[in-house]
Amino acid sequence: MRRYLIAIIGLAAVAGAAFWLLTEPSLLPPPDVPEKAPDLANGEYMFFAGGCASCHAAPGAKGEAKLRLTGGLEMKTHFGTFNVPNISPDREAGIGGWTNADFVAAMTRGVSPDGRHYYPAFPYTSYQRMTAADLIDLKGFIDSLPPVATAVADHDLRFPFSIRRGLGLWKLVYLDGMEFTPDPALNAEQNRGAYLATGPGHCIECHSPRDPFGGLDRGRAFAGGPAAEGDGWVPNLTPDPTGLADWSAREIASSLKDGFLPDFDSFGGAMVAVQENTARLTDADRAAIAAFLKSLRPIANAPAPKPAASDGG
């Protein structure tokens, strides 16, 4: 009996040690960060392409207030509540004082300067695709914004998701650390769209199904699925009849510009903030996103039919 107990304790210790080693944030290969002065105009463009303000500005902020990256938005998911952090260039409350290497490590490895894992509610699984040049430009632009000293509470998550270290295992499965590489089967316009939609624009994050561990189902990317927050449905963007088969590339690009769908309905929910960002892209980039979406393999995915309403009212 005693021998079994020792064996169990021994196994637990080995498992614990393995967990500790496998989840060590510094084990992720450091990103390549070239020396370069930031191009602030491109940084601003990436800021809007990336939708940073949609989550990191104060909830409900409009216009200039969107450039105050005070954080504080509560994302209520079934893992718990994520409190979006302050990423203004404030040295205490925000990310002021970060080096380019710190910023690139956060965006592509999901690791903080003090060596902790970030939760993937921060979509580094997409931002890892960004070029180092775009990332450095983006950091330069964020550094030019007003510092805000607002402190934001830590996330409030359910066990076991509350164990930050566990994200090391999650990353072994879901984070490949690969920068975007053009698909030789696509033309230059479609590849630009692919970069925007799977990299900075992170369209893929909301518009793809996820598995029970919160990982993207990349085999069914862009096929839509249940919203991470609330009980809504995020539309299927593939050219399937359950997706955007009926939309022309022009209609897709147009909706990203003015917020109206081909049937004259309007965007709603989180897509309103997204469209305020895509409205700032060039016509060529909106067309590129549309061309990329049209190049996707059609995947059938629609919400399961609801049980009949009890009283129709």
Binding site: G268, A302, P303
Partner: peptide
């Protein structure tokens, strides 16, 4: 006027399909 559509749908509508 048209700006009202998405402003209201942003907060008060949840797409279900």
């Amino acid at each position: 006027m048209a700006g009202n559509c998405k402003a209201c749908h942003e907060d008060y509508r949840i797409k279900k399909n």
